[in-house]
């Protein structure tokens, strides 16, 4: 049967910290060093290499290179733990930590400790992106004080997946920020509430309203949550949903990124349309009006 198979890929050999590693041609350096810290890298997105926390040293290269996007080339000699690498990662964490609230960024605290970073060193007066949380709809919340400008939400909303183009990077430099057209509220934008931006946000700047409210109330307990992957109850496309359940309530919905149907993407119904199964479920009225 003529099912086209991709041609077999040749292998390239590189060394990572002196150890030889063989990778299929076209792999990135990151593929060879999985424990590298990453923030703006997304497994379903084209690398933007904006955060620079994954930089490594490649022999012969004037500057450090981002592991997430640089392709491995035959004979490449990569150092992931050199003085320069550690310095850059430390400083990137300090620069981010001093300007952005990383309190809900998975991995940030561990990396800050690992690289001995001190985000406080820039002083009390250091400029930050602190700003009020944007709560303009009942489904998800935008807390841009936690935004590291990784571009992932813009890419997920744009031509890489959703193609709704509701958000963009506006402004320039330190003032650049994620914005709808004319900074309009979401409800007045092209947003279709697929939540695919929430799916890829690495910092918690974008979060389900349920999560946001529960965090505010101190009732968000991730360690108590179960994650169960099932199939959406709406149309016949068959999207895989991972239900995050706490106390027998769905509190968040994601989708497996390696799933052949969704590639991690959902629509408003799959992402947020779960409430009907828990309306009237308990005395606690979850539905507000």
């Amino acid at each position: 049967m003529s099912v086209p198979l991709p041609p077999p890929r040749r292998l390239v050999e590189i060394t990572v910290d002196g150890e030889p590693v063989r990778l299929p041609e076209g792999s990135t350096i990151l593929d060879a060093c999985q424990d590298t810290p990453t923030l703006c890298y997304g497994d379903t997105l084209t690398p933007k290499n904006a955060c620079r926390v994954c930089v490594v040293e490649v022999e012969g290269s004037r500057t450090l290179v981002p592991a997430c996007s640089r392709r491995a080339e035959e004979g490449m000699k990569v150092s992931t733990d050199s003085e320069r690498v550690r310095h850059s990662r430390k400083l990137v964490l300090e620069l981010l930590g001093s300007s952005v609230d990383l309190s809900t960024t998975p991995g940030a605290a561990e990396w800050i400790a690992e690289y001995d970073a001190d985000p406080q060193r820039f002083g009390q007066e250091a400029a930050t992106v602190e700003q009020p949380v944007k709560v303009d709809n009942d489904l998800y919340v935008r807390d841009y004080g936690k935004c590291i400008m990784c571009y992932k939400c813009v890419d997920a909303c744009g031509d890489q997946w959703q193609n709704s183009f509701a958000i963009t990077v506006a402004g320039r430099g330190f003032d650049s920020h994620i914005s709808t057209e004319h900074d309009a509220p979401l409800t007045d934008s092209a947003c279709v509430y697929c939540g695919n931006c929430v799916e890829v946000c690495p910092t918690g700047a974008l979060s389900f309203k349920t999560e946001f409210d529960m965090r505010a109330a101190g009732t968000w307990h991730e360690e108590e949550q179960t994650q169960t992957t099932t199939i959406c109850a709406y149309c016949g496309v068959g999207c895989n949903l991972t239900l995050h359940v706490q106390d027998n309530e769905i509190v968040k919905v994601t989708s497996p990124h390696d799933n052949p149907v969704t590639h991690g993407n959902l629509c408003i119904k799959g992402r947020f349309g779960f409430q009907h199964v828990q309306n009237g479920r308990s005395a606690k009225q979850t539905q507000k009006d």
């Binding site: 709809n137 009942d138 489904l139 109850a233 629509c267 408003i268 119904k269 009907h276 309306n279």
Partner: peptide, 18 residues
Amino acid sequence: RLDSYNTGVQSSGFASPL
């Protein structure tokens, strides 16, 4: 429509901004 479904029994359960 995008945010609603059939007779709305399921989709009326959540607060769609659309």
